[in-house]
Simulated assay, not measured.
Amino acid sequence: MAKTALIQQGLLAFTLNSPQNAKPFDFELANNTKVMLLASGVLQFEPKESTSSRAIVLSAGIHGNETAPIEFLDRLVSDIFALEITLDQPLLVILGNPPAMMEAKRELSVNLNRLFIGKHKNYERCYEVERANQLETLLDNFYQSYQHLPAYHLDLHTAIRGSKHEKFAVYPFTQGKPWKKSSLALLQSCGVDCVLFSNEPASTFSYHSSAKYNAVAFTVELGKVHAFGQNDLSKLDQLVSTLQQLLSASKLNSLEFEANKAILFEVSDVVNKHQEDFCFSFNQSQANFTEYQTGYELAKEGSERVVISNGPKAIVFPNDKVAIGQRAVLLVKRMTQSDIVQAEKKHRLI
């Protein structure tokens, strides 16, 4: 029976046994929570007899080799099945790219996290294109079913390389709306003090939720990529306790933003790859948030040079192996405590 297999195996093993063609089914837990398998790796939980105050999406495995958050969500789902987590809020859990997970690859053909908010329509048909369309539909249906509730979405990742700040989050472009201290407080409670503010629209999963549904949504990086079974999930204990609060009936107004602990960056430049010969001048193992001074030659492309201006600036997500037209690196500038105070005075941060 599918229900028994799912509960006994756990979401991860059950998904990997049928990475593309799982048949939907539903059942109820002993506490009357309805569980619905909507597609491979996608579970919706609908608590009964509770007064919900938010609709929550938790996703991982958008890149198939980012295993720590995949294992983390697998454990979270098992705890919900075992009634060890109080679930008072509707929840959508997504393991994004099961076939890539099977092959321990970032993607099969195309970067899935560049295909959302309709961008998949611009690509030739492949698994990731079809999956992006499917995930958008399931996400949209979920949020529309709970449109009377505030929306939340944490898209959990791990980075290809090390980082000077092990855990960090990307705050989606806000279309001119102010950044919210309450959102930063939620991240800090999860153990994420480092946040970088995007400066333009994106095609990421978290931006889809933020732009279309005004969700409190972030791409959250939880360390470095490791193989399945080689992750120390104890490093995510703060995330566990905060999600337990988020998923329960608890109010979140007890979470406070601590500006003195905040490590905030603004994206200043997005460097895209335009030619196959694009290459960085620094070592490919260089950590995220490594800073370079004004005048440093960051990369070469044909006869062009990418040079740091108005530095110092730090690198985030450098990858010169991306497809032509995609982002090769973000350049970010750290905000000082004075910058944070000015952002509050100008109501950029409320």
Results as ranks from 00 to 15, higher is better:
residue 218 F to S: 09
residue 218 F to A: 07
residue 218 F to M: 09
residue 219 T to D: 15
residue 219 T to I: 00
residue 219 T to G: 10
residue 219 T to N: 10
residue 220 V to E: 00
residue 220 V to Y: 00
residue 221 E to L: 01
residue 221 E to C: 04
residue 222 L to S: 00
residue 222 L to M: 06
residue 223 G to S: 05
residue 225 V to K: 09
residue 225 V to R: 09
residue 226 H to Q: 08
residue 226 H to K: 12
residue 226 H to E: 12
residue 226 H to L: 13
residue 227 A to L: 09
residue 227 A to V: 01
residue 227 A to F: 04
residue 228 F to T: 04
residue 228 F to E: 03
residue 229 G to S: 05
residue 229 G to T: 08
residue 229 G to D: 00
residue 229 G to N: 15
residue 230 Q to S: 15
residue 230 Q to M: 11
residue 230 Q to Y: 10
residue 230 Q to C: 14
residue 230 Q to A: 15
residue 231 N to R: 15
residue 231 N to W: 07
residue 231 N to K: 05
residue 231 N to Y: 07
residue 231 N to M: 13
residue 231 N to Q: 11
residue 232 D to Q: 14
residue 232 D to L: 06
residue 232 D to F: 01
residue 232 D to C: 05
residue 232 D to R: 01
residue 233 L to D: 05
residue 233 L to F: 09
residue 233 L to K: 00
residue 234 S to P: 02
residue 234 S to V: 10
residue 235 K to S: 04
residue 235 K to H: 15
residue 235 K to Q: 15
residue 237 D to W: 00
residue 237 D to M: 00
residue 238 Q to C: 02
residue 238 Q to F: 13
residue 238 Q to W: 09
residue 239 L to R: 06
residue 239 L to S: 07
residue 239 L to T: 11
residue 239 L to D: 08
residue 240 V to S: 06
residue 241 S to M: 07
residue 242 T to W: 11
residue 242 T to S: 02
residue 242 T to E: 00
residue 242 T to D: 02
residue 242 T to P: 03
residue 243 L to I: 14
residue 243 L to P: 01
residue 243 L to H: 04
residue 243 L to N: 04
residue 244 Q to P: 01
residue 244 Q to T: 13
residue 244 Q to E: 14
residue 244 Q to F: 04
residue 245 Q to W: 03
residue 245 Q to P: 08
residue 246 L to M: 10
residue 246 L to E: 05
residue 246 L to C: 02
residue 246 L to T: 05
residue 247 L to Y: 10
residue 247 L to P: 10
residue 247 L to K: 02
residue 247 L to G: 06
residue 247 L to R: 03
residue 247 L to D: 03
residue 248 S to K: 07
residue 248 S to A: 12
residue 249 A to R: 04
residue 249 A to W: 00
residue 249 A to G: 04
residue 249 A to D: 06
residue 249 A to I: 08
residue 250 S to F: 03
residue 251 K to Q: 15
residue 252 L to I: 01
residue 252 L to N: 00
residue 253 N to I: 08
residue 253 N to K: 08
residue 254 S to F: 06
residue 254 S to N: 14
residue 255 L to Q: 08
residue 255 L to T: 09
residue 256 E to N: 10
residue 256 E to T: 14
residue 256 E to I: 09
residue 256 E to V: 12
residue 256 E to R: 13
residue 257 F to H: 03
residue 257 F to K: 11
residue 257 F to N: 06
residue 257 F to C: 14
residue 258 E to I: 15
residue 258 E to M: 06
residue 258 E to F: 11
residue 259 A to K: 03
residue 259 A to Y: 02
residue 259 A to W: 04
residue 259 A to V: 00
residue 260 N to A: 03
residue 260 N to D: 07
residue 260 N to E: 09
residue 260 N to G: 02
residue 261 K to F: 04
residue 261 K to W: 02
residue 261 K to Y: 05
residue 262 A to D: 08
residue 263 I to C: 05
residue 265 F to I: 07
residue 265 F to C: 09
residue 266 E to T: 07
residue 266 E to V: 14
residue 266 E to L: 09
residue 267 V to Y: 02
residue 267 V to E: 09
residue 268 S to A: 12
residue 268 S to P: 00
residue 268 S to Y: 00
residue 270 V to N: 14
residue 270 V to A: 11
residue 270 V to I: 15
residue 271 V to S: 08
residue 271 V to W: 04
residue 272 N to V: 11
residue 272 N to G: 01
residue 273 K to G: 11
residue 273 K to L: 05
